[in-house]
Amino acid sequence: MTVWHADDALLAAYAGGGLDQARAASVEQHLTGCASCRAAIAPHADAALIARAWAGTVDRLDRPRTSPFERLLIALGLSPSAARLATGASAARRAWVAGCVLVAGFAIAAREMDGPMALWFLTVAPLAPLTGVALAYGPGVFSMHEVVAAAPYPRLRLVLLRCLPVLPMTVLLLVVGGLVLPGTAGAALWLLPGLALAALGLVAERLVGVQTAIGGLAALWMGGVASARITTGSVLGAFSPTVQLLSSAIVLGAVCLALVGARRTRSFW
C-alpha cells in the first residue's frame, strides 16, 4: 500500500492541465490505485459535467426496451411515443405470434389437401382482423381502461394505434391466402369482409363492450357463411359481389366517421 498521497496543489495543477507529461502520468498512475486521492480530486473536477453525465446514465438505464415491431413502426415514420402506445401494452404479444404461426401452419396443411381446406381458410380468415382488434383491447390493456379514459390523449388516435398490430396479421393472411387459393384474386376475397368486421368491432366495442362485440360479430359471420352454404351450396356465396360491396361501404363509412370525428371532437372517441 502506498503511504504517499498527492497534495491538493498537485491535484489542482493536474486537473487544470498545468503539469508536465511525466508528472501528470505519475499522478494518473497513482490515482488508478488510490481511493483517497480519487476522492480528493473531486473539487477540481467539472461538477456540472459530472451531474449531466449522471443524468444521462440514469436516462439510458431507464429507457424501456423496444420490440422489433416498435422499431419497425418508428422506422416507418411513427413517433417513438406513438409507437410505444401501439405496441407497448400489447400484453397479447405472445398470443399474437402464436396466431401467426397457427395461420402459417394452417396454410401449409391446406396446400397439402387443397379444395375444402382452402374454403375453410376463407371462412376463418375474415375473423382474423377482428381478433386482432380484440387482442389490441386484450385483458392486459383492458385493465388500464379507467386510467386511459381519464387521460387527455385523443381517443380515436389511440384506438387506431392499438389496431396497428393487426396489419402484419392481415398482410400475412393475404400472402398465405395467395399460396393456398387458386388464383390471386381468390386470396383477396376475405380481405374486405375481414376489415369490415374489424371496423364494426371497433364501433360495437364502444356500445356493448369488447367481449360481446367480438363474440357477437364472430357468431354473425359464421352464421352468414353457414346460411350461404345452405342457400347457394357453396361457402363462396358469403363472398359474393354484394357482400364485397357492402363490406367496402362499411369500411369507407368507418374511415369517414373516424376522420370527421377526429376533426370535430377529438375526445369523443
Binding site: R38, I41, H44, A45
Partner: peptide, 18 residues
C-alpha cells in the same frame, strides 16, 4: 451504481478531459 459513480466520476472526468 450511484455510490460507484460518486467515487469514480471525478477522477475519470479529469483524466478523460486531459
Amino acid at each position: 451504481l450511484a455510490t460507484l459513480y460518486s467515487r469514480h466520476a471525478s477522477w475519470l472526468q479529469v483524466r478523460l478531459r486531459r
